[in-house]
Each structure stands twice: as structure tokens, then as C-alpha cells.
Design a protein around this nucleic acid. Structure first.
Lengths: 228, 228
DNA sequence: CGTTTCATTGAGTCCTTTCAATAGTTGTGG
DNA sequence: CCACAACTATTGAAAGGACTCAATGAAACG
């Protein structure tokens, strides 16, 4: 496993966490992640962890983007999630990862030792509850993914854009970090279909496509109304 | 909410649980569910709880089968899971249910007060861990569902049958408690397509269909090889 | 035993994929 | 800085798959 340029000194992060805000004996999960996490740079397309590897760490995206995925027996790739800044990923209940994870673009990721958090959860029930809530968030996200996959191609692409827009900083414009192949493997479509649906949505005035990675949301209602 | 014929006396269940097996001060989750749960009968098609209702209880199937589902804005119904004997469902992290639940056939369901379990989890970290693991099991199940939905119609039906067979008592024969509509809404297909794929699989000798609810698995390999 | 619901089957349509070609982008080395 | 190579995205045409509409058959219910 290539770790990119590891920086074991959590430089510049102490001041951001909640750990130093008077909660030293009952630290919040977010505080521990910030203070006990080590920021690591992962270049584009570099693996963060592999499926069925022992789950020694979990991760929080500082900047960039990460895809979690599985390769199926027939060679297809299923992307389970796109992780954007602020997202936690790789938190397993069992001892092994159930997905692989790769940086989509050059990314900075906080790496947290699982044992550090689990030890804290042993003695602090509120802390344990927050860890449980993280799993719950992931569950909701996967359930939303299921909802995507029962829709038509146009609906999937439209819903995908709305999902990305909701998570992106800007409100009516999105910079997609991932390729058409990534989007296709997330939506269970081919890249050609994704491309065509985007072109259709642009033709209908629902979106603008200044370039292939940038999307301007011109008409959210049209998108929400399943791209029709 | 119709509760079926409520039996507030947990008749006959005390002897089955782990609660009386010498763990009274560190009870297991399974033990508490058995001893603190109240068995309730839910007739066919009766609602167990509704989406966005306050989540006061969760449930464990004793006998029968339960579907959890959502109705989408366009009227479509998405079935999130089929819960069979032994399955726990309705356990939420937040205060409201995110799905509705209905008995598929006359069912007997153990109803457990959420507060009972949460109180126990407050003081017993191992217990809390078991509750977390339940959410983790559900997460894995939904991720498996995502994998189903990116496949072709024949693959979905074949994988569905294998999933049901793996959870059913008998090894090469399954009694499906749910209708074709339920299966279709679970797989994101139409009932006609489900029916056709089943007929195809029977024609190819992968399965037998003595009647519409009973499936004999004749060739698991053919099913695993995406029904083809 | 009739009525109602559920499941199957058929024919045609529409949608998505596949295969193929073109266009655009990025990055590299001359 | 340009030219070329490699990759990524778009577009077109044809084939295949799933859906819709419609009719028939089977099972469950009163």
C-alpha cells in the first residue's frame, strides 16, 4: 500500500479540532478524529486501502475526493460511494474492509487509527453513540443509492447531479472530480448513456456544461422531475 | 396503527432466551430482546410501523415475513428488505422510522421498546457494540442490494432466489412468502419481467416451479452464473 | 360457484447497450 | 511552443433487453 507523502506530524490541525475546547475528559468523536488523525496526501488514482485488507484505520477527507468500490467476478466495477471533503469512510465493524478505496484526484486525507477510536468508545458511551451514528449515516447514504438504481437512466443522472450539488460548496454549479467511467460505475450505466443523458439535460436547458467536468444547474425543478 | 392481537404476556419465551442462562448482570442483546420483547401477531398486509413515525420500538421476526418499503413521489414502491424469522428490523439511530413495514403473511413478531435497549446500552459497552453490529449487518445487506440492482433482469431474479434460498430453512427448495409484485418492487423490475425470467430459468433447468410460490433449486451453478 | 386477485404469456414499443467512429483534452518530448 | 500520443468524452447506428398494453389462465376468497 502506497501511502503518498506521509506526514506524521499533524501540523496545523490541532487548532481546528474541538479537543482543545475544554472537553479533554469527554472528547467528541470529531475532536478525536482531528487531534488523533494524521493528514496524508494521496495522489490521483492511488489506493487508500484494498478490499478484505485488515481494517486498521479509517479516514476523513480533508480535500480532494475518494471512491470506494468493488470489482465483481465478471470484471465490472461497482462504485459504492464518492467521498468528498468532510466525509468519513473506511469505518468497519468487522476486522476487514469490505470495499477498496482510491483517491479520484490528489487528495489530503486524515488517517485515524481504529484502535484509538475504539478505545475511546469503550469508556465513553456518548462517544460510542457517535461512532454508531457514523455507521447510520453510511446506511442512509447506501439506501439513497438503492433509490437511485431503481430509476431510469435520465433520472439516475439527474439525481446524481442533484446529490453532488447538494454536497458541493457552490449552490448552482458543480465541479465533478470524477470521470464519466466513475459516474457510470456508480449509477449502473454505461459511459455512453451517461454522456447522452447529460447532453439531453443540457439540450432541455436543465443544465449547462461549459466543459465535461463542470455542471451548471439551470433548472433544479426539471432535474428533480426526473430529468424530463 | 393496528397491532393485531397483542399478547402482553411473553408466554413461552422465557425459556428460549439467554437471559436466564446466568448472565443477569451483563445481559446479551439477544437475551434482552427475548426477555423484554413482547410477541405480537400481525395479520397479512397489516402495517407494523409507518415511515416517519416516531421510532419507539424495534422488532424481531419470530415467524412469517415482513417487508420494509418506501412509496416514492411518483407512486412507485421500493421494497428495501424482506425480513424473515430471526431478522431484526426497524432499529433506527434517529427518532423516526425511515421506512414503512408490513407483514407479508400472518406473522408473529417480537416487539422491543427502543428505550429498554438504549438504556442497557448506556451502561454496558459490549451491549452497545452489539446494537452497533445490528446496524452494520443492515448496512451489509443494503450494500448487497445495491449489487443486485446493477445487474440484468435475469441476474437479479437468479441472485434473489439464491439469497432467499440461503436464508430459508430447506437447502434446495424455497417457499416464497411474497408476491410477484413484492419481488418486482424489490428488484426494480416489473412483475411481467420477473415472471418471464422465472419461466426462462425453469426452461433452462436451473429451477423448478411446482407452483408460483415454491421454487426448487435444481442447478445453483447456473443460477450463480447469472441465470444463463 | 362466481368474483376477485394474482400470475403468465404475447406483441409491439421504447430505452439502454454495444460497437464503431469522431472529437476533444492532457501530457510529454522534441 | 508545437506535435504527437494516449486517454477521455461525445455522437451515431443497430441490436438487444425491459417495459407497456392486452389477453388468458390459475388460484384464493367469500
Amino acid at each position: 500500500m502506497y501511502l503518498g507523502s506521509v506526514r506524521s506530524v499533524a501540523s496545523g490541525w490541532h487548532s481546528h479540532g474541538e479537543a482543545l475546547e475544554g472537553r479533554s475528559f469527554k472528547p467528541s468523536l470529531a475532536g478525536v478524529i482531528q487531534s488523533a488523525g494524521v493528514p496524508v496526501n494521496y495522489p490521483r488514482d492511488v489506493e487508500v486501502f484494498g478490499e478484505s485488507e485488515p481494517s486498521k484505520c479509517f479516514y476523513k477527507v480533508i480535500s480532494g475526493a475518494v471512491r470506494t468500490y468493488r470489482i465483481l467476478v465478471d470484471g465490472r466495477r461497482q462504485i459504492g460511494a464518492f467521498n468528498l471533503p468532510g466525509d468519513v469512510f473506511g469505518l468497519e465493524i468487522g476486522d476487514a474492509h469490505t470495499f477498496s478505496a482510491e483517491a479520484i484526484v490528489d487528495s489530503r486525507i486524515l488517517v485515524i487509527r481504529r484502535s484509538t477510536v475504539m478505545a475511546q468508545a469503550e469508556s465513553n458511551i456518548d462517544f460510542a453513540r457517535q461512532v454508531w451514528a457514523l455507521t447510520g449515516d453510511e446506511l442512509k447514504q447506501v439506501q439513497a443509492h438503492v433509490l437511485l438504481l431503481i430509476k431510469t437512466a435520465k433520472e439516475r443522472v439527474a439525481a446524481f447531479l442533484l446529490e453532488m450539488a447538494a454536497r458541493a460548496p457552490g449552490d448552482h454549479e458543480v465541479e465533478l472530480p470524477m470521470s464519466r467511467r466513475d459516474i457510470a460505475d456508480y449509477l449502473g450505466l454505461t459511459i455512453e448513456t451517461v454522456s447522452r443523458m447529460l447532453a439531453d439535460l443540457e439540450r432541455k436547458g436543465a443544465i449547462g456544461l461549459p466543459n465535461s467536468r463542470r455542471v451548471i444547474l439551470r433548472n433544479r425543478e426539471a432535474l428533480a422531475a426526473q430529468g424530463g
